[in-house]
Amino acid sequence: MPQLDKPAAAPASWSSGLFDCFDLCTYRCLTWWCPCVTFGRVAEMVDMGSTSCGDSAARYALLATVTGGCQWIYTYSYRGKMRGRPRRGARGDCCVHFCCERCALCQEYRELAARGYHPSLGWQLNMERRAAATAPPAVHYMAG
Rank of each mutant, 00 (worst) to 15 (best):
Leu30Cys: 08
Ala114Lys: 11
Cys36Trp: 13
Met127Ala: 08
Arg41Glu: 07
Val139Asn: 07
Glu128Arg: 15
Asp47Phe: 05
Pro11His: 09
Tyr27Cys: 05
Ala143Val: 03
Tyr60Asn: 05
Arg28Met: 07
Gly89Cys: 06
Ala131Ser: 12
Glu44Arg: 10
Gly122His: 12
Ala61Val: 01
Cys106Ile: 01
Gly68Pro: 03
Gly17Met: 05
Val96Glu: 13
Arg79Lys: 11
Cys21Arg: 02
Gln107Arg: 14
Asp47Gln: 12
Gly40Trp: 04
Pro86Ala: 06
Thr38Lys: 13
Ala143Phe: 10
Leu112Gln: 10
Gly92Val: 01
His118Asn: 10
Ser120Ala: 10
Ser15Asn: 13
Gly54Arg: 05
Trp33Pro: 02
Pro2Gln: 09
Met45Ser: 11
Val46Gly: 11
Lys81Asn: 03
Thr26Ile: 02
His118Val: 03
Leu125Arg: 14
Gln107Cys: 14
Met1Gly: 12
Tyr27Thr: 00
Gln71Ala: 12
His140Gly: 06
Leu112Tyr: 09
Ala9Pro: 01
Phe98His: 07
Cys21Asp: 03
Ala131Gly: 09
Ala131Tyr: 01
Arg87Tyr: 09
Gln124Ala: 15
Cys95Trp: 14
Pro7Ser: 12
Gly92Leu: 12
Ser52Ile: 01
Cys94Tyr: 15
Met45Ile: 03
Ala8Met: 11
Gly116Gln: 07
Tyr76Thr: 00
Gln124Phe: 11
Gly89Ser: 05
Ala143Gly: 08
Pro11Val: 04
Thr67Met: 11
His118Cys: 12
Cys99Asp: 04
Pro7Leu: 15
Val37Ile: 06
Met142Gln: 13
Thr65Gln: 12
Pro11Phe: 12
Val37Asp: 05
Ala104Met: 06
Gly69Met: 08
Arg83Gln: 07
Ala58His: 02
Ala114Ser: 13
Arg41Pro: 04
Tyr27Arg: 06
Pro136Tyr: 10
Cys21Ile: 01
Trp32Val: 03
Glu101Pro: 00
Ala114Cys: 13
Thr67Lys: 09
Thr75Cys: 15
Gly49His: 08
Phe39Ile: 02
Tyr78His: 08
Ala135Gly: 04
Gly144Thr: 00
